[in-house]
Design a protein around this nucleic acid. Structure first.
Lengths: 232, 232
DNA sequence: CCTACCGATCGGTAGG
DNA sequence: CCTACCGATCGGTAGG
């Protein structure tokens, strides 16, 4: 747990009436208790994501998660209705963040060449998968069978939105000849190649994300044939 | 379970003296009891592979597995020392079969063009992943974190052998210019793309394995640039 | 391979 | 969010 450890405020005040009575009257401060509460929830999500990723959902106990944030065994259920709900929240969190970041990437590259746009998608995807706070998406990728079908359906919708960001770019590349395989299968294969990186990527070793991006681009598209226009 | 089912020796006669006394003396028949027994072990492996794949290792109970083959809850432990041992056996089984098939493919394509050789590797890989009896390898791909480290190391060795079959082919393709990305990263990305197919492949829908093979080849290598020689 | 179990663990809850 | 629990389930075993 690196950087974002700072974000972890933690702490629960003693179940001690003094504190409550001591607090200033009037509009309750949104800062202390509420923010604290929000952070506790966030702490649980982060801890759950890490544990679910490393041990799997079924092999992780709610006691593991509680211990990871310094709670007692029953306390996670104060924040989440069930272990299932925690898993779903982790996945939603991850998917929303990923979608948001990828949308920004797409928007910032409007007008650039298709291969530049693909480079952006691939880079952001790798960052979401391998960068900081990167436990959420792997959990979504590898644990979705543990969800209830209604939850799975909701996430599938988000995933479709995510994939839809890739399609026009791949279509352009296909049209220019830089991408030879059919668009639909290409998207599945490409995302598979990237997603699999969570299985072998080792940040302490050799290739960094930048290298990965270039290798992926080189593998998938023929840059000579590509870039019919622009190129910023 | 194909061929090697014969290798499974196993044993133990009914805990019923009558059976033993009734059986013809002399060399024990290898047909009934023993073959039956061997099949039981194979049945367990097959059932475990399917359940581990669909529900995950941790979410599958040994009772699930027993029920799947019509045994009582304690009986799987007569064949396997522990749930762990069952998982390991499933993975070994899958990995040995995959290695064997892939070795045959490589041998049968000696002298052919590098892109033809890659086609063979990709095709066999898809068949192992998506064809009949294809629960074993996905279990190995997605559940290895549940293994003990000694077991994981043993499987890692087999996986290295498997990957080693790809390297010379990819090197040749890289040398000819048909593969643009570096060989080591290419292998990781390519195998990732293929492995991910178990997540989305639907045999009842659209693309068959043959189509997949062609799409993958088109995606990864530039057939125009390739095939400097041969081509059988 | 079945019967009959055991000890441990687990998700979850009441009540404060 | 803690304390103190409960009911259910699970991997595994003895003994035949």
């Amino acid at each position: 747990m690196p950087a974002h450890a700072a974000t972890v405020p933690a702490r629960k005040f003693a179940p001690d009436a003094r504190l409550v009575l001591t607090r200033p009257r009037g509009r309750p401060r949104k800062t202390l208790l509420e923010r604290d509460d929000g952070n506790r929830r966030a702490d649980l999500l982060r801890a759950a994501a890490a544990l679910f990723r490393n041990q799997g959902f079924a092999a992780t106990t709610t006691r593991d998660i509680a211990a990871a944030v310094g709670m007692q065994s029953g306390s996670p259920f104060y924040h989440f209705k069930s272990k299932d709900a925690l898993l779903f929240a982790v996945m939603q969190e991850g998917m929303h963040a990923a979608l948001e970041r990828q949308r920004e990437t797409v928007q910032s590259r409007i007008g650039q060449s298709p291969s530049e746009q693909l480079r952006g998608l691939v880079q952001t995807h790798f960052q979401v998968l391998l960068g900081p706070d990167s436990d959420f998406i792997p959990v979504m990728l590898y644990e979705s069978r543990s969800l209830q079908s209604a939850q799975r359906a909701e996430l599938a919708a988000l995933q479709s939105e995510y994939e839809a960001l890739w399609t026009p770019v791949l279509s352009d590349l296909h049209a220019s000849g830089a991408l030879r395989a059919p668009v639909a299968l290409s998207r599945l294969l490409i995302l598979g190649a990237l997603n699999w990186s969570v299985q072998w990527f080792d940040p302490s070793r050799s290739a960094g994300v930048a290298e990965l991006v270039e290798a992926a681009l080189a593998l998938f598209i023929d840059t000579r044939a590509a870039d019919g226009f622009a190129g910023a």
